[in-house]
């Protein structure tokens, strides 16, 4: 039995109590996230038209038929914004997940094994972090070519450096504990020690970091797509939608701002929730 597994059980009643005590900002954030998840999961059912379906003339104004007009190719903007929740958010989420997988495993390995593994991983991360990540991403994308898969891998690897640092730093404090030592003496394998002994004790900072990293990755991917180097057409994506329709802004039409606002709203929501979570977890420790 791992000594660490006796973290307080989250009963439904406790969760409800926690929710009731949450500030308005966290509630707002959770509501926003919920709306985005619903939009992403049920996009085909909610959207009035198809993702890449050309349904009208170019740049049509807001009307009954097209609530927020059509885009530069005559596709329904509203439908594309809804599908964007699936594509943009989905890809950002996948990238963050991959970054965490790489970063946390490497961090745990470095903290548990120490010695040359720690040195090697640490110095590699130092070098990767010495180059601004957007510039690094641009350099690699020039060479391997711009595609969604390439972008996901490049950003995930670059972003995993921050996860690595955090994971390594917080697990260092756990590795020296007696229960880890006793697990070692019991002859538990490396994987068991990492998963069963250390991971449960560093979960809280990692969860908060996941939220922050997601925001960062989401903004980076949107920026790359906006620059025309990220998610490629005809996939509906918020960054490239802003880019494709940006000319409208100089005519006083704010339609292209809607996908940009969609990006901003989700990031604000996630930040609010993370802020509350950090406040909560750090408050409990003190």
């Amino acid at each position: 039995m791992a000594v660490t597994s006796d973290t307080p059980r989250r009963s439904p009643a406790r969760a409800v109590k926690l929710l009731r005590e949450s500030p308005w900002s966290a509630r707002f954030g959770m509501a926003v996230i919920l709306v985005y998840v619903v939009a992403a999961l049920f996009a085909p059912a909610i959207a009035p038209y198809g993702e890449t379906e050309i349904v009208g003339a170019e740049y049509e104004v807001w009307s009954e038929q097209f609530p927020i007009g059509t885009d530069n190719l005559g596709r329904d903007m509203l439908s594309r914004v809804i599908y964007g929740a699936r594509n943009t958010v989905g890809i950002a989420f996948l990238t963050t997940l991959l970054a965490f997988l790489i970063g946390s495993i490497a961090g745990l390995l470095a903290a548990t094994l120490r010695g040359w593994v720690d040195q090697l991983l640490g110095r590699t991360v130092d070098v990767l972090m010495a180059i601004p990540s957007l510039i690094f991403a641009l350099l690699i994308l020039t060479i391997v070519g711009t595609s969604v898969i390439n972008m996901i891998v490049v950003i995930a690897v670059l972003d995993s450096t921050r996860v690595f640092r955090l994971t390594r730093a917080v697990s260092m404090n756990v590795v020296v504990m007696d229960f880890v030592e006793s697990a070692r003496l019991r002859g538990e394998g490396l994987w068991w020690i990492m998963r069963q002994e250390i991971l449960p004790n560093i979960a809280a900072p990692l969860v908060a970091e996941f939220g922050l990293r997601f925001c960062f990755v989401f903004l980076t991917i949107s920026a790359l797509s906006f620059l025309g180097l990220g998610i490629q057409p005809p996939t509906a994506d918020w960054g490239s939608m802003v880019r494709d329709n940006a000319t409208l802004i100089s005519y006083g039409d704010i339609t292209p701002m809607i996908p940009a606002a969609a990006i901003a709203l989700l990031t604000v929501g996630v930040n609010f929730v993370v802020d509350w979570f950090l406040h909560k977890t750090s408050g409990l420790k003190e």
């Binding site: 903004l219 949107s222 906006f226 940006a246 100089s250 606002a261 901003a264 990031t267 930040n271």
Partner: peptide, 16 residues
Amino acid sequence: LTSISFPEFFVAYIMI
């Protein structure tokens, strides 16, 4: 907190 969350191009286009 809000302005950290905004993509740069969003802020830029609002300004424009």
